[in-house]
Design a protein around this nucleic acid. Sequence first.
RNA 1: GGGCGUGUAGCUCAAUGGCAGAGCAGUGGCCUUUUAAGCCAUUGGUUAGAGGUUCGAGUCCUCUCACGCUCACCA
Length: 507
Amino acid sequence: MWTPANQLERERFDKLNRMQEMGIAAYPNRVQRTHTAVEAIRAYEAVENENHEAAAPVEVTVCGRVVRQNLKGKVWFAHIEDGTGRVQLFVRADNVSEAAYTLLKGEIDLGDFVQASGTMMRTRAGEVSVLVQDFAVLAKALSPLPVIKERVTEDNQVERFGAFSDVEERYRQRYADLAVNPDVRKVFRDRAQTVAALRRFLDGAGFLEVETPILQPIYGGAAARPFVTHHNQLHQDLYLRISFELYLKRLLVGMYDAVYEIGRDFRNEGVSFKHNPEFTQLEFYQAYTDYFGMMDVTERLVAYAAEAVTGSTTITFEGHTIDLTPPWQRITLRDAIRQRCEIDYVDYPDAESLYAAMRAADIEASPKDTWGKLVDTLLGTVVEPTLIQPTFILDYPRDISPFAKAVPGDPTHVERFEMFVGGMEMGNAFTELNDPLDQQARFEEMARLYADESDEATPLDEDYLRAMRYGMPPCGGCGIGVDRLVMLLTDRSTIREVLLYPHLREK
RNA sequence: GGGCGUGUAGCUCAAUGGCAGAGCAGUGGCCUUUUAAGCCAUUGGUUAGAGGUUCGAGUCCUCUCACGCUCACCA
């Protein structure tokens, strides 16, 4: 049985008990809403604009949460809020039953859900309000929400007093965060719009949306530690997927020309402002094209989503104005690095010499890294933070890209690009490798490279190779981090602000 | 995992090693057109947790927990 944790909850609990003694249902089953808050106001304004004289009274029943109340003698004002907005209730003691007035005067708190019936009118101060004739509780709030007051200034800005800003508590009690912080609600509406826009674009471009296994006997498609779980009846360990890649490409063997999936990936890695253990990924694959085709689709896709969410392809992120209008800048990885630190990595064709050159240039790196990993470190440290405007970085070292086709005439590089915006990696794409024998060699190469780091090795997927031996059309594929895209479009600096329930440790 | 920082009332925050406070919210009172309503009065604390130093600890020390920033890790 719940007991009040403090004085505020005790007061509310007492009110609940008093209501029960009065025979008032604190959590009734039925509501009689006829108008949302915004509909009620609009209905009145419409009549008001039409004809003052013959206007029929606008009768409404509205429902919502009490977000402000002000008892002034024998008059009670309150704002209630629903999903559409707020409307003011205006109660006069001699205009409602004694029971109703006693109820709202004595037992109603901020946070309670209520229902009010009455006639729309305009108060002396000019606010369209419900002149209440009947009043009921819909749900008593036993715990107090953080108190935030608002004032609408003369230039129509909302000024807020008070806050619920403790980051940890906001995430742990996201419901309270959403209830009192409208800008947080906006972020997740924008998130939904982003995902909807991605689907709309890809559906319109002829891609088929599919769903592939989250529980997998073999994980693959990326280099990351997986989460492991177990199926009891099958006596089988299963992995939560770290990417969709290998399952989606099998579908091109199965003669779909273009497929995509939006879903959750799980990576058993560190947590940071741009990493969460589970995150939402978009991957799309298209036959009869290559990574150049993927660049075209990607930049149009992202611009489309930006337009849908923000109304423009020019956005603001962390104080930067970012223009997502295609075409985006394209530069090879080699040139991008060479421009920024005067290391041309082709001059250092092995890990030892490249490591030495990086140390000489005062760039942190691990001496145990492979050559490809060192190149990636260069990208991450000297290039990535500078890529504010949308940029495709092209052509990556072969040994960190086991699923990409080699650049013709250059066996050390593969046709791969990553897209960067706002100093963040947002996506990764290849001209997909479709040579089954080369793919098998890559798997074996990866196994050798990661021989001493068993948990990072990409396991050899025999079934994927079998699929490829049936023949896979030439294709391009791309993965986009949806959370990071939402961060960009909503101007949030951490992934946790765009995840409803980010991962937190148990307290 | 390393470094730095934070944790005080429901919320937002104060408090030289010396009585633990304010605003909002709550409670009681006045007020029949308020809107951050106002005025008067007033309640509310395991100072994240455990231990230590001290005559005396929110404050200093040690450990633990959570969160933030940062580095590492994350091809």
